[in-house]
Computed example of a mutant assay.
Amino acid sequence: PKIARSVEKFFKDYKVMELLRRCGLRKSEGIPLWSILSYIFSNVFPDRSMYMQQKYGKCTAGFSKNTYYRFMQNPHTNWLRFTILLAERIVNGHLKDLTSDQRADCFVFDDSPYSRTGYKKTELVAKVFDHVSMTYKKGFRMMTMGWTDGSSFVPIASSLLSSKNDQNVIGTTKKIDKRTIAAKRRIMAQSKGTDV
């Protein structure tokens, strides 16, 4: 309940529902978006998935797993745009006022390996080069962009990168309507990191 109240306050303070509507999230009937989103955001803190909660009879969601998965797999929601807009609101609306004008702030880019052990059914998983161990690993490269003022760090955007070379892609691929956001993300996943 305390976590849910904090999530609710965060949603109101940063007008999260307005941002999501700007990013293509629509729901005309059934369970309200507010309920699904607050459950998903609150779920991050106890570190329990919906599956594990249902398995042990501790699921507090007022909706079925089908509703949850349909929401998470909606190919029309632009989650990348959402994280960018939300980070902009947090930085400009809250953190900039706490930072001295003399302190330099900057963008940080990180390209870390994200290994995937159960990769056979994971879409676009590839053999990617890990510059730390100097070996190829099965998984993705996680390209992350963030903002920092030296004290605070706010993640702005992230993208899982596969391989541009089809011979290195070992995961499955799906045919998706090229006009959707989901298809554009798949194209981005197979682009060069510097382009992304």
Rank of each mutant, 00 (worst) to 15 (best):
Y14E: 02
P75W: 02
R186A: 04
F10R: 01
L124W: 02
W34G: 10
D130L: 03
K58T: 15
T144A: 09
N74M: 06
K65E: 11
G57D: 09
G30A: 03
S115T: 11
Q102S: 15
S152L: 02
W147N: 02
F129N: 01
I156A: 01
S151C: 11
R89G: 10
S42D: 01
R141I: 14
D47Q: 14
A4M: 10
T99A: 08
Y68T: 04
L98K: 14
L161A: 03
V132R: 13
S100Y: 11
H94N: 14
D110E: 10
M52Q: 14
E18H: 11
Y69T: 13
M72W: 03
R26C: 07
L37N: 07
L37K: 00
A183P: 06
H94P: 05
T173C: 14
R26K: 12
M145F: 12
S112V: 09
L25D: 01
T180C: 06
M17I: 08
K58A: 14
S158F: 15
G118V: 00
T117D: 09
T83E: 03
A182R: 04
R141C: 07
F71W: 11
H131D: 03
F71H: 12
P46R: 07
K27N: 12
D101P: 15
H76F: 09
F129K: 04
D166W: 09
P46A: 10
D166R: 15
K96T: 13
D105Q: 06
V169G: 04
C59L: 11
L37M: 15
C106L: 07
G150Y: 01
I156N: 03
Q53V: 06
I176C: 15
H131G: 05
S152K: 11
Y119T: 00
I176S: 09
D195Q: 11
E8Y: 02
D97W: 10
K164D: 05
R5M: 12
F140A: 02
I170N: 08
L98V: 08
H76T: 02
S191P: 04
N78R: 00
L160V: 03
N78F: 00
Y69Q: 09
G139E: 03
M143C: 15
G57N: 11
V44G: 01
L19T: 02
R185L: 09
V16E: 00
P32W: 07
Y136C: 07
Y119N: 03
G193E: 08
R26P: 00
V91K: 05
V44E: 05
Y14C: 06
V125C: 10
I40C: 12
